[in-house]
């Protein structure tokens, strides 16, 4: 935990792959020995302790486990924003902001899709790309 307002809004390339066409994926580890997946990338599997892990792209669709509207945060984040946990089919639970909807549109268990979006600026004023989840499946003609 932090007592400071250090700039936190950065996604490391090892956790979030951003491609030139604007698409991207969350990255994590898959254990070649037992098949377990982890976010973020790990150096050994906590299931079987194998060190034979590969970095994989995670699915961009998952289901909403739970969410909250955060109304008090650090100076880095404008409030309010919706924060949620999304379960991906690989068996990982990802925390992320939820965009493109009102809180009343959300229901636990609904399908969510990863979306790469502008996510504030770094200390030098450069635009950062981050991820949010948006309600609906990728094939459902989201805006």
């Amino acid at each position: 935990m932090s007592a400071t307002a250090a700039p936190a809004k950065s996604f490391r390339p090892v956790e979030l792959e951003v491609r030139e066409d604007g698409t991207g994926n969350l990255l994590g580890s898959r254990c070649r020995s037992c098949g377990a997946h982890f976010f973020p990338v790990r150096q050994a599997c906590s299931g079987c302790l194998s060190q034979d892990l590969e970095t994989v792209r995670f699915s961009t669709e998952g289901t909403l486990y739970t969410f909250s509207v955060v109304r008090q945060s650090t100076p880095d984040f404008e409030v309010p924003y919706i924060l949620g946990y999304v379960d991906l089919p690989e068996g990982v639970r990802i925390m992320g902001q939820i965009g493109g909807c009102e809180p009343d549109d959300l229901a636990l268990g609904m399908t969510m899709t990863l979306s790469l979006e502008p996510f504030g600026e770094d200390v030098e004023g450069n635009e950062l790309i981050g991820y949010r989840f948006r309600p609906g499946g990728a094939g459902e003609g989201r805006p």
């Binding site: 932090s2 936190a8 739970t66 909250s68 955060v70 650090t74 924060l83 949620g84 925390m95 992320g96």
Partner: peptide, 28 residues
């Protein structure tokens, strides 16, 4: 104000706060 995870943590980058995490658990 709200406690947050260490800034090095990926969940800090998306705006995790301790009240936010417990609020999500409360909703569930």
């Amino acid at each position: 104000g709200a406690l947050t995870p260490d800034p090095s943590d990926p969940e800090a980058a998306v705006g995790a706060t301790m009240p936010g995490v417990y609020a999500m658990r409360a909703r569930r």
